[in-house]
Design a protein around this nucleic acid. Structure first.
Lengths: 187, 187
DNA sequence: TTCAAATTGTGATGTTTGTCACGCAGCGGA
DNA sequence: TCCGCTGCGTGACAAACATCACAATTTGAA
């Protein structure tokens, strides 16, 4: 685990061994089985997660009981219900395993200590947050400019492995179309 | 101008007079008239902008010539084509005035100097970036969970002044529906 | 193995939304 | 003043998509 997290961070900010030891001390590692929840709607959100292996989905359940997938989180991705995490409110979304998954957990307290104690890490998180914002804007743009067929093509192109790893019902829920419509897009 | 920018920053990080003088030196103030461009598609993106007064829209023009509004930017908002700004690539979107607008401009070079020179400002931008990411996710959620009528209601509720300030054609373009459909939603 | 649950495809039908066309009102510049 | 442009509404029709229903296959747990 040490190695994966370190390599990930060092893509943006190089660290000395001492610095990484300091960073490392702020994380805990946990394993979850398929179908388990890391975050449940209505409960408090203790951690942000860095995915070492496996696959997660960030899901919003609407009043009528329908599932809407805000995001998938694969290896090397950060995920949480950031609204609830940063504002320390109850989760409005759930974070659930689609596969057995291993994550590094970072509590809000440790996140703040890490930023305060090592400017490099504040810089790292700034870069990640900017990247996340840009990615979300791209997704908004795909809703504005593209129909279901095009959005599906973009998804396949961007994350080819997803198509093998998750049921099409969930892909449909990510794309914002019914599973029947998605089923008919292929052809 | 001094005052507005300072108050805005101090909502997140308090500054001494000296610190603010340092911050202030990294910005320039510019005025634009209605219809003028701050950023044009295909050109390089020099600055990120803090809106002192007026109203901007961040627009993507697709191949077929249709306009898609990624974001409006009102007083106290930050806006740019962040992808092009941070990656130093050509703009894929345009940033245009909907009203006469006054902004504080922050070049990428000055943004970096500011972050490097004053940790408080890196922290400030981290908070802003997190907020931006969260807001974008909320917008994605509204596309996933809501139809045109509901998205329009949410827009009215969230930014009531926009309805008075911008033509409905542009609101439609922000909501991802045709202007005719929007026109028929009201009733 | 065995059986219930999950996954996927597909037909029939209705709703939502886009597109095209037209008319009308308001506004600003020559 | 006149005229062109923009903004807005609305009717008619077509396309995209949702919903409901059913069947076939695969998966996973006891």
């Amino acid at each position: 685990m040490e190695q994966k997290l370190r390599e990930h961070i060092e893509k943006i900010v190089p660290l000395t061994d001492d610095e990484f030891a300091f960073v490392r001390a702020h994380f805990t590692v946990k394993s979850y089985k398929k179908r388990e929840y890391l975050i449940q709607e209505g409960k408090s959100v203790k951690d942000a997660y860095f995915v070492l292996s496996g696959l997660l989905m960030l899901v919003y359940n609407d009043e009528s009981g329908k599932q809407h997938i805000v995001s998938f989180a694969m290896e090397d991705w950060w995920e949480s219900d950031y609204q609830a995490y940063h504002m320390q409110t109850k989760a409005t979304m759930s974070l659930q395993c689609l596969e057995d998954t291993e994550v590094c957990c970072l509590s809000l307290e440790n996140y703040r200590k890490l930023c305060a104690g090592l400017q490099k890490m504040e810089h790292f998180f700034l870069r990640k947050a900017n990247g996340g914002h840009i990615a979300s804007q791209q997704r908004i743009l795909s809703f504005l400019t593209s129909n279901a067929t095009e959005r599906y093509q973009q998804l396949i192109k961007r994350y080819p492995s997803l198509i093998q790893r998750v049921p099409k019902t969930l892909l449909a829920s990510y794309l914002g179309v019914s599973r029947e419509t998605l089923s008919r897009l292929a052809r």
